[in-house]
Design a protein around this nucleic acid. Sequence first.
DNA 1: GGTCAATAGTTGTATATACAAGTTTGCAAT
DNA 2: ATTGCAAACTTGTATATACAACTATTGACC
Lengths: 236, 236
Amino acid sequence: MSQAKAAKFTVIKEHICQKIESGVWQQHSKVPSENELAEQFSVSRMTARRALQELTEQGLLVRTQGAGTFVATFKSQSSVLEIRNIADEIGERGHEHQAMQLQLTTVDVTEELAILLGMKQGERAFYSEVLHLENKQPIQLEQRFVNPRLVPEYLLQDFANITPHEYLSNEAPLTEATHEIEAVLAAPENCKLLEIAPSTPCLQVKRRTWSSQGVVSLATLTAPGDKYRLGSHLTF
Amino acid sequence: MSQAKAAKFTVIKEHICQKIESGVWQQHSKVPSENELAEQFSVSRMTARRALQELTEQGLLVRTQGAGTFVATFKSQSSVLEIRNIADEIGERGHEHQAMQLQLTTVDVTEELAILLGMKQGERAFYSEVLHLENKQPIQLEQRFVNPRLVPEYLLQDFANITPHEYLSNEAPLTEATHEIEAVLAAPENCKLLEIAPSTPCLQVKRRTWSSQGVVSLATLTAPGDKYRLGSHLTF
DNA sequence: GGTCAATAGTTGTATATACAAGTTTGCAAT
DNA sequence: ATTGCAAACTTGTATATACAACTATTGACC
């Protein structure tokens, strides 16, 4: 028995996957256009298109009309996970929530950030860093990049009083989000903030949120695995 | 300004959605074929096809080559996280899935286990331990307790051929599940199995599944955080 | 140097067509 | 009646083409 003959578009898909997994095509690098792929593999444009299309649905690629197709950072697709406000969650446990605003500033967007936030290189994004405490104990570090075009007054807020998530929910109601959940070791400086040993495994949630206007923000949440659990919802 | 003109395939999608949501088209009933839709809406077959295709990806429809397109059952919506078969997931990545059955036996239920599985203390439960490999690399350790009342023939299976999840899905279709996700350090013996250093942070998912008859199983999945990521679905 | 317009390149939608592959149905031969 | 086969129908893959919508770049002009 020989292998079942693979369809042409799957051959192209596998080729692209391979390039990405092997690191030949880095994150956010441009991948060949539909026409280029069509010529390379001697197929019609529609067949090449299908390969790109399906990989985009799987979350490996990101496409923008007029600009091109790029390797995505996040592998996950649109999510059904409920998002909650961390202050509410802690309140429901009958505990006290506090937030320390560590940073609130603007930063130059790197190439990667520009793509993820739907901004142009050279522009500046807002950046906030907030440490959440439950009964005075640090439980979550929130690092967030925000698209200034959609939330121009982000820097004027005081995130000791309102969580970034709560503020953003009001300003630019989110319509979609993707997550990536990983177990990691936190960076040394973050271990200090969270008051944990460097070897403590942490849950890290990367989340990209959209409003109707486009990508609103990109948040990285880090929480020690022994203090924090993820139910069927994610807490911001 | 008037509304942006909707693309033709979205018009068809909306039409079909409406029929399903209003109950005109019941579960498992046949929906018009590509050709019929094409004629009805005066579009080409490929456009009608796209509408059906996208609704299939969304889970509203089910298609089988040669037979037709049908309204899907609505079970998937209720669960917050989609559960997938790890073998399928790996297959879709174009990789090879293998499973090593490490243990398959009965154990005395502890007090805790008895409560979680809805059994009585002193009874014995089934226990399986399976290591999943992706391209010969260990990526996930699955430890599972199973309620013998609901799945009496669990011990007769060979989980090198069929994943426990797949088998259980057939025997006792799951109606509900809860998860708990943590970041942990794996036990030394499990680190060996997964071929990771003892300090490697791991994602650990604890999942309890129900069928209509009661609690079916209690699974603990452990995966190295750097090899494994959690999207909007959990992979079993 | 800065602005604007034209242009080339890229993805998105839509059509018409052809053949492959799988399922169901119905008819003919046994 | 049962079997076996052919035909009709349905979905799957692939091609060639056309135009629309959007982006980034280039070059002319001020």
